[in-house]
């Protein structure tokens, strides 16, 4: 039986919701990877050296690992035990982005200004 227009629209909507939730979960993993590697790299000896050895520079390494985290997060969204709508996921990413923005600005103000003048 040929599906009618409304069921096709519903299918499009469901597909779009799945895509956006997956991309949001990927973005969340990438944000966590960038923030975690950035802060831990300043305290845990060897992390920056490892990133430099593997990727040529720690900044390139963090970008590459964030890319991998994005792909892993997108895939992981299909395996998570709870189901959330894509609006919830986008809001969750917005809050994380703001939180990590403040965290990194504060972290580099503390680290950078301390290093520059002491």
């Amino acid at each position: 039986m040929k599906p009618d227009a409304s069921s096709s629209l519903e299918q499009n909507h469901a597909n779009a919701e799945r895509w956006v939730a997956a991309a949001a979960c990927g973005a969340l993993f990438a944000l966590w990877a960038i923030t975690a590697f950035t802060i831990s790299g300043e305290f845990v000896g060897g992390i920056k050296g490892w990133l430099r050895a593997v990727f040529g520079h720690h900044w390139v390494g963090k970008g590459a690992l964030a890319g991998i985290a994005f792909l892993l997060g997108s895939g992981a969204s299909y395996l998570l035990p709870f189901q959330r709508g894509d609006t919830w996921w986008v809001r969750f990413v917005v809050w994380h982005t703001v939180l990590f923005l403040i965290l990194l600005l504060g972290f580099f103000a503390w680290m950078g200004l301390g290093n520059a003048y002491h």
């Binding site: 779009a16 895509w19 956006v20 991309a23 949001a24 990927g26 973005a27 990438a30 944000l31 960038i34 950035t38 900044w59 963090k62 970008g63 964030a66 890319g67 994005f70 894509d86 986008v90 990413v93 982005t97 990590f100 923005l101 990194l104 600005l105 580099f108 103000a109 680290m111 950078g112 200004l113 290093n115 520059a116 003048y117």
Partner: peptide, 28 residues
């Protein structure tokens, strides 16, 4: 010296957020 120690370090790391969050916007 804080222009590198703070401004450049914060700039280069905050920038890394942008491609991934914008990718989410583009997918939506």
């Amino acid at each position: 010296p804080w222009a590198h120690a703070f401004a450049m370090e914060a700039k280069e790391h905050l920038f890394l957020f942008l491609p991934f969050v914008t990718l989410l916007l583009a997918v939506a």
